[in-house]
């Protein structure tokens, strides 16, 4: 019998080397997260996946699973901490869901729904961030960037292109692209890159797909992010599926 640990009282098997998050996802158990993705190396920056192991806070996407661990996940205390983290993310950027084409497919929004976040609570930063529409097929809308570096990892680990990187420090941290001009068009980025379909929010958007899926039929309209189980990590984009069906159909 391989080892297992308790997640909110439930037995979760794991194979050696797996993190708590990987084991939980494999068992179809949802631990809130934003910067984690099953296909890429763990990052540990958003801290949404913070759990308590033996009474101590731990980042479940980076901490190794160990036999006998008692992991608290969806407790009131941790969900309240996650709500605060989500509120910090919402006030740091410019998140105008009503006019955003990623709404309904956005992991930040769906996680906030799951945590029952009703207000951003803090004073908004309302930063001045650019929009880069230079690339023929993909739009970069930096206002919604939550600095999760999924695109950085995808472009480096899968596409081997290093198109994206984080520059600056503290709240001045921002996404930059790998070109002298700083424009996406001047990089070797294409709409079929893995990095083009990995953004959990509405920063990297394929053009001409905006609002193709009606409200009510989008990924997180159909079911909450917690019900996505193991593939909760898959970056949902019903718009991509719609486009795919359009081409295939």
């Amino acid at each position: 019998m391989n080892d297992s640990f308790l997640l909110d009282g439930e037995d979760i098997p794991f194979t050696p080397g797996q993190t708590v998050m990987q084991a939980a996802a494999a068992a179809g158990k949802y631990i809130p997260h934003l910067c984690w993705h099953p296909d890429f190396a763990a990052h540990g920056s958003c801290k949404l996946c913070t759990v308590k192991i033996g009474g101590r806070f731990a980042t479940s996407c980076t901490v190794r699973a160990a036999a006998g661990q008692e992991v608290e996940n969806r407790t009131d205390e941790l969900d309240a901490k996650r709500r605060t983290l989500l509120q910090l993310l919402f006030v740091e950027g410019n998140h105008f869901c009503p006019s955003c084409e990623k709404s309904g497919d956005c992991a930040l929004q769906a996680t906030a729904y799951e945590m029952g976040m009703l207000t951003p609570h803090f004073d908004h930063f309302y930063p001045d961030r650019p929009v880069d529409a230079s690339h023929p097929d993909v739009l970069l809308e930096f206002n919604r960037c939550i600095l999760c570096e999924l695109c950085v990892r995808a472009s480096r680990e899968v596409d081997g292109k290093n198109v994206f990187a984080l520059a600056g420090r503290g709240t001045r941290s921002h996404l930059v692209v790998n070109s002298d001009s700083g424009r996406l068009a001047d990089t070797d980025f294409t709409a079929s890159d893995r990095a083009a379909a990995v953004c959990p929010v509405g920063v990297i958007l394929k053009k001409r797909l905006g609002f193709t899926v009606p409200i009510g039929a989008r990924t997180y309209d159909l079911n909450p992010i917690s019900a996505m189980g193991a593939n909760a990590g898959q970056q949902a984009d019903s718009r991509a599926n719609a486009a795919h069906e359009k081409e295939v159909g």
Partner: peptide, 14 residues
């Protein structure tokens, strides 16, 4: 101004 053009109809509804 400066917004992706396909966002504008959804914005001006408001």
């Amino acid at each position: 101004q400066g917004r992706p053009y396909w966002e504008v109809p959804v914005m001006v509804q408001r």
